Each structure stands twice: as structure tokens, then as C-alpha cells.
Simulated scan of single mutants.
Amino acid sequence: MAGGSRKQVRFPDAQRDISAWEGTPDTPQTLSPAYRLAFDDPDFLCRPELRPVRLQLELLKPELTLAEMGIDSTVVLFGGARIPDPEHKEKARTETLKDLSRYYDEAREFARLCTRHCVEAQGRELMVVTGGGPGVMEAGSRGAAEAGGKSISLNIVLPHEQAPNRYATPELCFNFHYFAIRKMHFLMRAKAITVFPGGFGTLDELFETLTLVQTGRMEPLPILLFGREFWEKIVNWEALADAGTISDSDLDLFTFVDTAAEAWDVLRTWKKPERAA
């Protein structure tokens, strides 16, 4: 081919075959479910036996999109969906939640700081990624939007909290069926993990991250826990070390911070620890 710049297409693409199939005359044969193209047959794709294929699709769809957009690194914001915007904290069901509302503002400000850097890097570095829901997730999406940038949202189908928050970037808002694949996407491009007060989901995300780093299955990175008072009340970290169920050095895997400015300073100055000989 002249110039060699265009890829030769030998076979029709899938979309063309779907269009051709839609124009097929209705007959007993063509109306049968058996006749549908396998990749255009929702009933077939949702069969229990096709779970391995669905797992692969959930891994591939966001990965291909983020790669095509040139996003190299992210900063993850984990945190509770129930942490209220301070403007509406009086609606919170406990006094503790009202007090924790200050972390909504800290998440919002931290997302702004990260996004300013991301915008300067043409959207390639330190893009904020959240779970796409309310609470801390909304604060992260909101701060990114206020800084004039984009954010990634990794939503999941739940009986509640399904809809993405209104600040999520539409073209970077993904929906998942599998928690495991969703958690992989949180970590695949992560340059830092920030964890705000939260519940079971936040604890799950935190401890999976710590386990992967502790066991060497993931490279070390800054893991910043917002709110020392909250986290030391929820988890007796020292007791784990004293009992010998974790090493004393495992307590160095994470850093407590209380403000967005403090977290940003830690992120900017963090150096990867040297491996023991």
C-alpha cells in the first residue's frame, strides 16, 4: 500500500454484521434466538457459563478507554458514601457523621489540587478516580470539575446508590457488575491512594490495597489515611503489631493526614522505599 499508513481491513467489522442482521426478513428461522449473532445476543451473554467472558469484558472496556485517552496515572479517593456535604450535614443521622462532614471539604480540595496538576499535564497524570457515588466520591468528582478537569468514576450496580453523582465526567463514568474487577481498575494506574472515613466498602478497599503492598503483589505507593482520630478508633493498628500478626514495619505502609494540603505535600515528596537486600 502506498505510504503504508492505512491498515487494510479484510473482513467486515462486527457493527456492519449487526446492521446486516437487522435488515434480514422476518422468518421462523431468523426470529429464532439461535440465529442471533452471539456477540449481539444479551440472553446468551448473560448465561452463567459466560461469566469468564463477562469478567474479561469488564476488564477490557475501561482499560481500552483509558488507554485511548492517554491517562497514565491516577489518584484514588476511597471514602464513605454517607459522609455529607457540610451544607447539608444537619440531615445526617448521627452526630459523628455531622462531624465527619469536614472530610467532604477536604476530599473536594484534595481533588482540586490533584486536578490542577492533571490539567497542566494535559490530562495524563494524577487524574482523580472515585467510586462515582455520593459522599466522599461526590466530593472528589466535584473538586475535579471545579478545577476545570475530568475525573474517572467506577460505579457499581447496587440496590441503592446506583446513579453516578452529577459531577462525574460522563465519558469516564463506568459501571460494573463485579466488585473484583472494579477494584482492579482502581489500582491499575494508581500513583497514590487516599482513604477517607467510611464503612465496610471503604475498609474492604483499604485492606485489599494494604495486603497487596504488604505481600509484594503491588509496588509501594503513598497510602494516605485522612483522619488519624477516626482511623485509630476504628482499627487498633498497634495491637496488630504487638500481637505479631503484622510486622512493625507494616505500620509504615500508610500515613495519617488531616488536610488536603498535608496530603498533597506527602504525595509530592513521597519516595519509594528501598527494598531490603
Rank of each mutant, 00 (worst) to 15 (best):
D40P: 01
D41N: 09
D41K: 01
P42V: 07
P42G: 07
D43F: 06
D43Y: 10
F44L: 00
F44S: 03
L45P: 05
P48C: 12
P48I: 12
E49T: 11
E49M: 05
L50W: 05
L50Q: 13
R51C: 13
P52N: 04
V53E: 08
R54W: 11
R54E: 10
R54Q: 12
L55W: 00
Q56E: 14
L57C: 08
L57T: 14
L57H: 13
L59T: 08
L59H: 11
L60Y: 04
L60D: 13
K61Y: 15
P62W: 09
P62E: 12
P62Q: 12
E63R: 09
E63Y: 12
L64H: 14
T65I: 15
T65S: 14
L66M: 15
L66G: 13
A67I: 13
E68A: 15
E68I: 10
M69H: 13
G70H: 06
I71K: 03
I71H: 04
I71G: 09
S73A: 12
S73V: 09
V75H: 03
V75K: 00
V76S: 10
V76W: 01
V76R: 01
F78T: 01
G79P: 06
A81S: 14
R82V: 14
R82Q: 13
R82Y: 06
I83S: 12
P84D: 08
P84I: 00
P84Y: 02
D85F: 07
D85T: 10
D85S: 10
E87P: 11
E87S: 13
H88S: 15
K89H: 08
K91S: 13
K91V: 12
K91P: 09
K91A: 15
K91N: 13
A92H: 03
T94L: 14
E95A: 15
T96H: 11
L97D: 14
K98S: 11
K98T: 15
L100E: 08
L100R: 03
L100Q: 11
S101T: 10
R102S: 09
Y103Q: 05
Y104W: 08
Y104S: 09
Y104F: 13
E106M: 06
E106S: 05
A107I: 06
A107F: 10
R108D: 07
E109R: 02
E109Q: 06
E109M: 11
R112F: 13
C114K: 01
C114T: 09
C114Q: 06
R116N: 14
R116T: 14
H117N: 04
C118G: 10
C118S: 13
V119G: 07
V119C: 12
E120N: 07
E120R: 08
A121R: 01
A121I: 06
Q122E: 11
Q122C: 15
G123P: 07
R124T: 11
E125F: 02
L126P: 01
M127T: 05
V128E: 01
V128F: 02
T130C: 03
G132M: 02
G132F: 06
G133D: 05
G135E: 04
V136H: 02
V136C: 02
V136P: 04
V136Q: 03
G140S: 02
S141T: 06
S141I: 01
R142T: 05
G143W: 00
G143H: 00
A144D: 03
A145L: 03
A147Y: 02
A147D: 03
G148L: 01
G149Q: 04
K150E: 09
